[in-house]
Amino acid sequence: MKLFGKRITYKQEKVIFGILFLSPWIIGLVFVFFSAILDSLLYSLSTVHFISGNATDAEISAFIESLGGFAFKKSGVILEWVGLDNFRYALFEHGTFNRILVDSVIEIGLNLPIIIIFSLLVAVMLNTRFKGNVFARAVFFLPVIIASDAITTALSQATLLQDTMNNVEESVFGNFEFQAFLLEAGLSQSIVTFLSNTVNQIFNVISYSGVQILIFLAGIQSIPSHLYEAAKIEGANSYESFWKITMPMVSPHILTVGIYTIIDGFVRAPITELILSLKDNLLYGYSASMAWIYFAIVILIIGIFIGLMNRVVFYYDN
């Protein structure tokens, strides 16, 4: 290929096209992602004052003077430096932030193992051949299509309708009786509550684990079949070969699935509502600092998860 009249090698051509191919993404990274994350960091460390559309430069600089301290104009807003005050406010002064944050973290912590185990089991079951497995697959990935916050919000308004249609007294009573039975059987109250909560949110668990099932299913199908044949010849039954072959071979995907599950929960987390409502009230500083605290905790959780998993994960290549 020729460039500016000079011949270039294939290797150089590859580099040029590599940069060219990446250019939209790099532009996005620098001008959208980095600039947004830098702004967000600055917002979290300052009080944000908005400039009305018709303010002159002189007025703006006078306003900055009047603030005293360290203030500057950045991308359409005036930032008054307050250091870590916003973080202090979020953690120690705000009424509900701590509780909602803990709720969000607990939700991740509870949902993570449930979703991983559930999706692995479903993937194993869907992988076997049985009558109607095409139908079952189609149904299991339906929630991927229809899982939407908008629909969840809409349906949360429709609970009375569902109750009316379900003749609610009976179903609640049935569930209640079963709980009483478990309590009688000697299980502790907290375990029973946990179990009944899990069972009650089975629909949510299914609808949040569509992609995870797909990942596991793909992982299971990429296991070479000669491993199973060898195990069968050695006399292993399918239960044994699940624990000795499927589990280790699938374990790297547990990492992928776990991280995906955490990421997927971001927008659904209860903290999102709080952060966006503060933004709507133009309290950008508080909102940004809360978002950063949430980010730090999420990174921590992902780190812990990877750390724990790295002890268990088995890599076939090594």
Partner: peptide, 12 residues
């Protein structure tokens, strides 16, 4: 998390 960059994104 998208909420971390939400406000600056809106401003941009």
């Amino acid at each position: 998390p998208p909420q971390t960059i939400a406000m600056p994104l809106y401003m941009i």
